[in-house]
Design a protein around this nucleic acid. Structure first.
Lengths: 104, 104
DNA sequence: TTGACATGCAACCATTTGGTTGCCTATTGT
DNA sequence: ACAATAGGCAACCAAATGGTTGCATGTCAA
């Protein structure tokens, strides 16, 4: 879980996930196109995404195809964000009350 | 949005949010209790959470009360995770197909 | 078979991050 | 009034991070 959060913390990595979401199964070079970053930098980001299990790769000859794995993202939603949804209204109400009390 | 992802990337910060979720409106010292970290380290984390708007503080005399703001977390769920939920099954199916093709 | 293409590896670098310590300031209870 | 309490500020530090460059390797196509 921690690896996933860490992987998602970087904007470049999130945009790589966006790219794969738009078109799955891209090669490294395809993913580099139009990015203001060296190929090696992209490689490093992809390795981090792989280690977080957000991306799975398949070698096909000299090419490496990258596939989005949506499961960890889904788990963040289910296991983490959901927890804070419960009690969200209570927390918001309390926050509002305290902020109003402050102005007295 | 980026600030929120960055803030959530650290496990200590996520556990501070957990603590506030369990009991809202805690002081700095209360939030420090039982943590293997100096008070100043906790302060730094709380500042980052405040800057990401995940925590709102209210001074009350010499005490500073910390309140959880669940809105940014909710937004991550709505604006970001949701996007990947759409097409999740398609992505999973494609991933499965490619992984099977590999073994041929 | 050999040159071009796709990717991998390693060393290096600056900046950010997460933490510490020491001291200062403000508020409160007795 | 004053000691204890709650928190703030600043300097410092090691390690992690995000990036670079140069070169090596593996695969394909002419």
């Amino acid at each position: 879980m921690d690896e996933v959060f860490k992987a998602l913390a970087d904007g470049s990595r999130r945009s790589l996930l966006d790219r794969l979401h738009a078109r799955n199964g891209q090669t490294l070079n395809e993913l580099c196109e139009g990015l203001a970053m060296s190929r090696q930098a992209v490689t490093k980001h992809l390795v981090i995404l792989e280690e977080a299990n957000l991306v799975t790769t398949i070698r096909h000859g000299r090419e490496k195809l990258h596939y989005l794995n949506p499961v960890p993202i889904h788990q963040i939603g289910e296991r983490w964000i959901r927890k804070f949804e419960r009690g969200k209204l209570a927390a918001l109400g309390e926050l509002k009350r305290q902020l109003e009390k402050r102005d007295e």
